[in-house]
Amino acid sequence: MIRKGCLDDQLFIMGIIHNAIIDMEAKGIYQWDSIYPNDEVINNDLSNETLYVYEDGGIIKGIIVLNEYQDKEYEDMKWEFNSGKHLIIHRLCIDPKYQGQGIARLLVDYAEQQGKALGYESIRLDAFVNNERACNLYKKLGYKAVGIVEFRKGKFYCFEKGL
């Protein structure tokens, strides 16, 4: 089941993020750390009711944040869809012990359903260039890379999909 996260979920969510950071670093992927995403970022997501959890059997196995916030670096991208509203995916994260079960796909599908229902023209997101698994997922789901932005941890592809 996918539901909005609540403040009571924060400790568990931070545990998932911590586990994901350890797993990514073991694979040579250095996109997240203790600076981002931190407690304050997740608390803001929860307070703004933009963080959703995938829960199965009472266990939160993954998260996704959906909102309209676009980093200023997005301004230089050659987006294909420019006339309407855009839903942005942030912080998609699956607990490493539950990866490979299709949970990320379910969360992205949920984002697309929400985007369509709320009248968004497209979904936009960025993914760390060295996170091949994430980049391949988005490509497989029909997202098109429109350029590269640079953040504190390195280069990220910007992806977009029309709804």
Rank of each mutant, 00 (worst) to 15 (best):
M1C: 02
I2Y: 06
K4I: 13
K4Q: 14
K4S: 08
C6N: 13
L7K: 12
D8A: 15
D9Y: 01
D9N: 07
F12G: 02
I13S: 05
M14K: 03
G15A: 00
G15M: 00
G15N: 15
I17Q: 04
H18S: 11
H18E: 12
A20C: 08
A20I: 07
I21D: 09
M24G: 03
E25K: 14
Y30V: 00
Q31K: 01
W32Q: 10
I35L: 13
I35T: 13
I35V: 15
Y36W: 08
Y36R: 09
D39Q: 12
E40V: 12
E40D: 13
V41E: 03
N43V: 04
N43D: 06
N44M: 12
D45M: 07
L46A: 07
S47R: 11
N48D: 12
N48Q: 11
E49H: 04
T50H: 01
T50I: 14
L51A: 08
L51Q: 04
V53M: 09
E55S: 07
D56M: 05
G57F: 06
G58F: 08
G58C: 09
K61T: 07
G62E: 12
I64P: 11
I64L: 05
V65W: 05
L66C: 12
N67H: 04
E68M: 10
E68V: 04
Y69C: 01
K72L: 07
K72H: 08
Y74P: 02
Y74K: 01
W79S: 10
E80Q: 08
E80Y: 07
F81V: 13
N82S: 14
N82M: 14
K85Q: 09
K85A: 14
H86C: 12
H90I: 10
L92V: 15
C93D: 09
C93K: 05
D95P: 11
P96F: 06
Y98K: 07
Y98D: 11
G100L: 04
Q101M: 15
G102C: 06
A104D: 08
R105W: 07
L107R: 10
D109A: 08
A111I: 09
E112N: 10
Q113V: 14
Q113N: 14
K116Y: 10
A117F: 06
G119R: 09
G119V: 03
E121G: 06
S122F: 10
R124L: 13
R124T: 04
L125T: 11
L125P: 11
D126K: 00
D126R: 00
D126I: 00
D126Y: 00
A127F: 07
A127G: 15
A127H: 03
F128V: 02
N130W: 03
N131L: 06
R133N: 01
R133G: 06
R133H: 01
C135G: 03
C135P: 09
N136R: 12
L137P: 02
L137D: 05
Y138A: 05
K139S: 12
K140F: 08
K140V: 01
A145W: 00
A145D: 05
E150Q: 07
R152Y: 12
R152E: 14
R152Q: 06
K153R: 15
G154V: 02
F156V: 03
F159A: 02
F159K: 06
F159T: 01
E160I: 03
K161P: 09
K161Y: 01
G162N: 04
G162C: 14
